[in-house]
Computed example of a mutant assay.
Amino acid sequence: MGALTDYLADLPEPEQRALRHVTDLARRLAPDAEEGTSYGMPALRLGGRPLVGFTAAKGHLSLFPFSPAVVDAVRGDLEGFSLSKGTIRFGVDQPLPDAVVERVVALRRAELEG
């Protein structure tokens, strides 16, 4: 098991299911990514660099693309979601659209491989 798998296993069922869905989408787009940590959070890493990170906090879940440019690129598709420079927040009752997660991973992967 890896840091991300272990982290997800320790979450309550609703949060685990919601984050697992996002991580499964990310893994499909980056099957060569490895589990690890970045900035102290569970993450998928590509070529030793952070691709996307994931956390569960009280009241929300977060996807971290580690790139303000990636967050800005999907901002228009996330009306009603809480965003900051490097974080996309969502909830069990407000899941991220699959197309947005896929775009985040594709954009971040392009940054890392560019």
Rank of each mutant, 00 (worst) to 15 (best):
residue 1 M to C: 14
residue 6 D to R: 15
residue 6 D to C: 12
residue 7 Y to Q: 12
residue 10 D to L: 13
residue 10 D to Y: 13
residue 11 L to S: 07
residue 12 P to F: 08
residue 14 P to T: 06
residue 15 E to Q: 15
residue 15 E to I: 10
residue 16 Q to F: 02
residue 17 R to C: 12
residue 18 A to H: 08
residue 18 A to L: 04
residue 18 A to F: 07
residue 19 L to V: 05
residue 21 H to E: 14
residue 21 H to P: 10
residue 23 T to W: 08
residue 25 L to K: 06
residue 26 A to C: 09
residue 27 R to S: 03
residue 27 R to W: 00
residue 28 R to C: 06
residue 30 A to E: 04
residue 31 P to H: 12
residue 31 P to W: 09
residue 31 P to M: 11
residue 31 P to A: 08
residue 36 G to M: 01
residue 37 T to A: 13
residue 39 Y to P: 12
residue 39 Y to A: 15
residue 40 G to C: 13
residue 40 G to Q: 12
residue 41 M to P: 10
residue 41 M to L: 15
residue 41 M to Q: 11
residue 46 L to C: 04
residue 46 L to D: 01
residue 46 L to Y: 01
residue 46 L to R: 02
residue 47 G to L: 08
residue 47 G to K: 03
residue 48 G to Q: 10
residue 49 R to D: 11
residue 49 R to K: 15
residue 49 R to C: 12
residue 51 L to M: 01
residue 52 V to K: 07
residue 52 V to I: 13
residue 53 G to M: 04
residue 54 F to H: 09
residue 57 A to H: 14
residue 59 G to D: 02
residue 63 L to W: 01
residue 63 L to Q: 03
residue 63 L to N: 01
residue 63 L to S: 03
residue 65 P to D: 04
residue 68 P to Y: 01
residue 69 A to K: 14
residue 69 A to V: 14
residue 69 A to Q: 14
residue 70 V to I: 07
residue 70 V to M: 05
residue 70 V to E: 00
residue 71 V to K: 07
residue 73 A to S: 15
residue 73 A to T: 10
residue 73 A to Q: 07
residue 74 V to L: 00
residue 75 R to G: 12
residue 77 D to A: 15
residue 78 L to K: 06
residue 79 E to P: 10
residue 82 S to Q: 13
residue 85 K to R: 14
residue 86 G to E: 02
residue 87 T to K: 08
residue 87 T to I: 10
residue 90 F to C: 00
residue 91 G to N: 05
residue 91 G to Y: 00
residue 91 G to W: 00
residue 92 V to K: 04
residue 92 V to C: 06
residue 92 V to N: 02
residue 93 D to M: 14
residue 95 P to L: 12
residue 96 L to D: 00
residue 97 P to W: 07
residue 97 P to G: 10
residue 98 D to N: 12
residue 98 D to F: 06
residue 99 A to M: 11
residue 101 V to Q: 01
residue 103 R to G: 07
residue 104 V to N: 00
residue 105 V to M: 07
residue 106 A to D: 11
residue 108 R to W: 05
residue 109 R to T: 03
residue 110 A to N: 06
residue 110 A to G: 11
residue 111 E to K: 09
residue 111 E to I: 10
residue 111 E to R: 07
residue 114 G to C: 02
residue 114 G to T: 00
residue 114 G to S: 10
